[in-house]
Each structure stands twice: as structure tokens, then as C-alpha cells.
């Protein structure tokens, strides 16, 4: 009896696709650089034109790495939430994390404008925005988890997260009403999302925290699999439900919190990629689907970013718009196609 189908072919395919997406992402932009020179630069060849080296090493490479980390992290968070809440519509932001981050940033930008005048907002640095977003995300996560402590029904946590979303949106509206047009614009730009603003030291922070989250994630792979049967069956298999629930929320909070802090609230990826991965890999086993989701998340993010740059033009689209504009119809199409095979 065949106990486990082999997935190596599919993984070879998506890993190749990841490399391809990475190279395409690096080679397309407002300046035309030959692919060979890009590869040479990556391998440390210093004979390439200095300006090209700068573009590749200080602009395109950090952006591509950010795209990989953001895409993987958000997609894994989405998968965790979908398993925990057994709801295909759950995404990385259902715990109110992006609302918290948005509130933090809104308080910083719009608050500065309201109290210190519109000109003061120009002096707000990238890192302080990231810090405000992290604080906001962490605060909301802490409150949701504190309330969740006394709640037996996991579904209620989903609703609490959604309520926090509405609540923070309302506060942001009030803040926005009293702010200047310039600061409002700055806030709106943040909500568009951006992958290109990260310096190497910020990428190091992003990488370290993503890596730590993934290490933590390893410890709950097994209970996540038993949760596929529902909570009562999971407990009957020896799962410590509270611990698993808390760890899942902490990992999701850490991943989405730090990603949102650095790149803004990037929509859609976390919701859609787990579905894409499950359609492609056709398994629910977390030992297989987690790496698949991470790789596919990175691919989708790299392609979205490539499209957002509008190759050969000088304009860039907001990444948040691209992920939804191209992603949503794609998922609908995939689901319709899947239906037909039944």
C-alpha cells in the first residue's frame, strides 16, 4: 500500500519557478541591465559598471529578498490561521494585526500632524514608522490573546479579531478627519505597501524574526495536522489545545507584525497563496504544505513586484493594488476550474 505520494517533482517545479521569478525580478526595472551581468554581479564580479552594481546590490537585490520574506511569511501566516480557525477565508490579518499596525502608523503620522503641524510629518523616518506599526500590531495581538485566554470557542477569537479591525478603522477615520491633506497622503502611501524601502540592516531584522518564527512553527507542525480533524479529535490525540492555539497566534503575530511594520499591510497574498498551494500540491499535511506555501508565496510576491514596477517605464504601481488586481481573478479562475473536475 502506498502510504505517501511523492512530492519531489512538484517541489522541483516550484523551486525552479522561484529561481526564475527571482532572476526576472532582478533583471526588469527602469534601467535595462543584461541578465548575464546581473548574475555576474551576484557572484561578486566587480568588473561590471559601478552604477549597475549599485542598482542591483543596493536596490533590486534587497527588494527581491524582501519580496521573498514578505511573500513566504504572509502566506504561512494565512495557512496557520486557516488551519486554526478551520476557515478558508481566514488570512494573516484576522487577529487584527494589520489594524493594530495601521493604528500605530496612523497615530504616528496623523498624530504628529495634528499636534505638531503638517510640516513635522516630513521628518518621520522609516524606522519610526516600522516601530509604530510593530507596537500597534503587538498591542492588538496582546489584547486579543488576553481576551482569548478566557474563551473556549476558537471561532469567537476570529470575531474578536474582526471587531478590533472595525474598532481601529473607526479611530483612524477620526484621526484622518482632523489631519492635514499632506499627512493623510503620507499615511495612505504607507497603506499601499512597499517592498523597496528596506536597508540591509532592516532586512537582517526581518530575516532574523522570520527565521525565529519558522523555528517556533516546527514545534506545532504535528498538532496542526491533528487539528485538521477538529479540536475535539485533536485533544483526544493528546494535543495541548491551548498551547497550540497560543503558539499559532504568537507565530502569526510575529510574522505579520514584523512584515507589516516594514512593508505596510500587503493584502491578499496571505489569503490566496495557501489555496494556490493546496490546489497545486493537493495535500493538507503541514510537513509538506508549509514549505510549499512558503515557496509559492515567495514566487507570487516576486511576480507581483515585477508587475508593479511596470518594466521599462519609470512608474511603479502600489504593490497592494497589484497583488489583488492580478491575484483575485486568478484564484477565482482556479477554483472554478477545480469545481469542474468533480
Amino acid at each position: 500500500m502506498k502510504s505517501k505520494p511523492t512530492y519531489s517533482l512538484k517541489f522541483t517545479f516550484i523551486i525552479s519557478l522561484l529561481f526564475l521569478a527571482f532572476l526576472i525580478n532582478l533583471s526588469l526595472g527602469s534601467v535595462d541591465i543584461p541578465l548575464l551581468d546581473i548574475v555576474k554581479t551576484l557572484f561578486g564580479d566587480t568588473s561590471i559598471k559601478d552604477s549597475w552594481q549599485n542598482i542591483i546590490l543596493d536596490f533590486r537585490l534587497p527588494k527581491a529578498i524582501t519580496a521573498i520574506l514578505v511573500g513566504s511569511g504572509l502566506s504561512i501566516s494565512g495557512l496557520l490561521m486557516q488551519t486554526l480557525f478551520r476557515n478558508p477565508l481566514a488570512g494573516p490579518f484576522v487577529l487584527g494585526i494589520s489594524s493594530g499596525a495601521s493604528l500605530g502608523v496612523a497615530l504616528l503620522i496623523l498624530g504628529t500632524s495634528a499636534f505638531l503641524g503638517a510640516s513635522a510629518t516630513l521628518s518621520i523616518s522609516n524606522l519610526s514608522i516600522a516601530l509604530a506599526a510593530s507596537l500597534g500590531a503587538f498591542l492588538v495581538l496582546a489584547i486579543v490573546m488576553l481576551i482569548a485566554k478566557n474563551i473556549k470557542n476558537t471561532m469567537s477569537i476570529l470575531i474578536i479579531g474582526l471587531m478590533f479591525g472595525s474598532f481601529t478603522a473607526a479611530i483612524i477615520s477620526v484621526l484622518a478627519y482632523f489631519s492635514s491633506a499632506e499627512s493623510l497622503q503620507q499615511y495612505v502611501f504607507w497603506t499601499f505597501g512597499s517592498l523597496g524601502n528596506l536597508a540591509w540592516n532592516e532586512i537582517t531584522i526581518l530575516f532574523t524574526l522570520t527565521f525565529l518564527s519558522l523555528l517556533l512553527l516546527l514545534s506545532i507542525i504535528k498538532p496542526l495536522n491533528s487539528l485538521l480533524l477538529g479540536e475535539n479529535y485533536a485533544v483526544s490525540l493528546g494535543v495541548n489545545l491551548k498551547k497550540t492555539r497560543n503558539l499559532t497566534m504568537i507565530i502569526t503575530g510575529l510574522l505579520t507584525g514584523v512584515i507589516t511594520a516594514f512593508s505596510g499591510p500587503i493584502a491578499f497574498i496571505g489569503l490566496a497563496v495557501p489555496h494556490l498551494a493546496k490546489l497545486l500540491i493537493n495535500t493538507s499535511d503541514h510537513r509538506i504544505i508549509v514549505p510549499a506555501v512558503a515557496i509559492i508565496g515567495a514566487i507570487v510576491m516576486l511576480f507581483s513586484d515585477t508587475i508593479a514596477q511596470l518594466p521599462t517605464s519609470e512608474y511603479t504601481l502600489p504593490i497592494n493594488a497589484v497583488t489583488s488586481l492580478f491575484g483575485a481573478p486568478m484564484v477565482i479562475w482556479l477554483l472554478i476550474r477545480k469545481r469542474k473536475t468533480y
Binding site: 478551520r86 485538521l228 477538529g230 475535539n232 479529535y233 493546496k278 493537493n282 493538507s284 499535511d285
Partner: peptide
């Protein structure tokens, strides 16, 4: 148990 298993690919 009597409860339904959530839909998945198992």
C-alpha cells in the same frame, strides 16, 4: 465523535 471533520485534502 458525531462532529463533522472540517474540509481538507487528507
Amino acid at each position: 465523535l458525531t462532529e463533522k471533520i472540517p474540509e481538507n485534502n487528507l
